[in-house]
Nucleic acid binder design. Structure first.
Lengths: 206, 206, 206, 206
DNA sequence: TATGAATGAGTGTTCATTCAT
DNA sequence: AATGAATGAACACTCATTCAT
């Protein structure tokens, strides 16, 4: 657990350490990351580090939590937006926010990506999709079903999963290419296909 | 390069070493993997290891190649199947094979998954999707467009990417749950949605 | 760079480590020298060694520097001697000091000798003769030319090189014999030859 | 001891091995030299190597002996030259031959130089100056004393040592500079100084 | 005679963590 | 609360040599 000692730290030192953590974990896997480098980078003593965090894992978890928090705040925006868009527009909005986030805090995203890979048990638990956000989208789909925009026989969970898989894959791909141009357009095209279906119209009433 | 010395090894020893490699790399990232553990596990001397492989990277690449080969043989089947199915059926077939593979050789899949995470440069190059397989699916989509099963205004590459993202995400998720039951059914449901679209029929002719 | 950690070490431990360094590098070439042996000899942990020095090279350079310093202090004496001697007497004085040094600190000399042999690049740069000392002798020769003790048509650099070659060779030879008796006498004899020349007098005015 | 097995080897293989030895020992100190590299370079099996030589030391000694032999043959020339030159001219001739040798077989010289540095006991014994050659020069000096070219009160051994020290130092220096131009001229200048002495003429009859 | 697989000690270096001050 | 010295296990990799075939 992050100690209270750390929380009480003066802001400047705290920031230095946070920056060092971000830097290290955005460039290295958890197991490759080096506390040596972190304390040197943050210009604090080895001993201090272990007074702030119980061990390497602890500081990593703390960092992830901070990132999650920032991400949460950002994505809150999505949720609070004008409610008259369809769920597809919401997804597009989320994509937009995500791109913004990735561009502004690429290191955060990097950390998340590296996290995905590391197979330590304690990490696995964090990779699960945010259930609150899932729920939010499920509700949007239900709302759109009520509105008559989406067929009522479609399972909201299934549809939601589809859309998540697709947007996630797109984000990942574009992040590695470091080029997000045209991404929203592409998503729009895909969503259009999903809405109208791939079958030709004459096949539709078979 | 894997040395000829290794190739000439008697089968029993070779197997012991291969098993050790599989074991190590299915439990650890490339950079976490330990040659110490491998040789101990395989019950060979450190010196011997370096007579079989030039270095750590070498043995890893060799392992990946062996896995790729086995995978290739398995998936050859998909490609050679009866050609009257739609592209959706092909994807379902591929899913089926993948599940089979994951169940039979879960460690192989694990190795591939860990590979995805390690960010060493030489690994990044290997994670790109098999372009031949992509091409194969593009062609299937075009064929189905000719057959009148898929709308001609749909971009084959876009559709193919959608389907890949979805199946890949499903496989990953189910693998970690270690439960593949109902997966094919779920995929079928998703594909049905994609075919008919999410819009209610009356919205279709707007 | 030698770390401040090392400088701050308590004298006893520091001495133990220095002795171990001296011992190792006087018995082995740089590349043969073993850090394993050094830490065992100094009775410190491997980890500590790397807290004192950044690497093998670092500890070696440090040792050389210490030796150079001690040597410098000793040879300062030569330079500050009574100025009425001829350059030959100065060389004899230097020889005398060198013998003293070799007898008192034979390991230091050994280290220097081993250094000569190792062909690593960073070492080559250190083997060049001390240019300051060279300059000092050049000036002495010029002074003696003014005084009328040495012929003015003789190139000081050439003469200086001759004398250095000879004294250096003598020192080396005697060091390996571990017997310096009669050396000064021998040098005096050689210098006498150089002064009067090897030609018989009657040939002199040809 | 080099085994008879080696001597009986077919010329081509023998040459390959010799070349590999020369190559390795001209680039590395005895202790740095690697039998691994030698056998790979010579394209022979590890086992064979140990059938030709008892160990690393053995092959090194053999190589040195071969070089010494070649050197001997070359320098024999010096000894058999026209006898009317002065000892100084003989030294100049030797220098000339040495430069030739260094230029033609720089690797041989390199090996010799590395040899100088390695402090193994068995090596020390080989670095002693060739006594036969020394004797030859002593005799030349005595001859020149008889001829009235060199003062009779000069000790031949002392003079010989002087000249050796000087030529040796020159050769070493120029070898590392990889530039032998002007070397003979420089030697001639030095020898001239030694012949006439450094004292001004008017001081000569004091 | 030739081969090359096997070996285990050795190399320099980094590591996360502890603990006395 | 802060420090930084100490530690020993771990890392990937190389070595000269042996010996069964």
């Amino acid at each position: 657990m992050v100690t209270s000692t750390f929380q009480r730290l003066d802001e400047e030192k705290k920031k230095r350490l946070m920056d060092a953590l971000i830097h290290e974990f955005s460039e290295h896997t958890f197991s490759e990351a080096s506390i040596n480098r972190i304390v040197k980078d943050a210009n604090i003593s080895r001993g201090s580090f272990y007074q702030y965090f119980t061990d390497k894992e602890d500081c990593y978890l703390y960092l992830l939590q901070v990132i999650a928090q920032e991400k949460y705040i950002l994505f809150q925006g999505v949720v609070q937006q004008t409610p008259h868009d369809s769920v597809y527009d919401e997804y597009l909005g989320m994509l937009d926010r995500s791109i913004l986030w990735m561009k502004e805090k690429p290191v955060y995203y990097k950390i998340g990506a590296l996290m995905d890979l590391d197979n330590s048990d304690f990490i696995r638990n964090m990779t699960k999709l945010n259930p609150q956000m899932m729920e939010y989208f499920h509700n949007l789909i239900r709302r759109d079903q009520e509105r008559g925009i989406i067929r009522k026989d479609i399972d909201p969970v299934t549809l939601s999963e589809m859309l998540f898989s697709i947007t996630r894959a797109m984000l990942t791909e574009h992040f590695y290419k470091q080029d997000f141009t045209g991404m929203i357009e592409k998503a729009r095209k895909i969503f259009a296909i999903i809405q109208t279906g791939t079958q030709p119209k004459e096949n539709n009433h078979v």
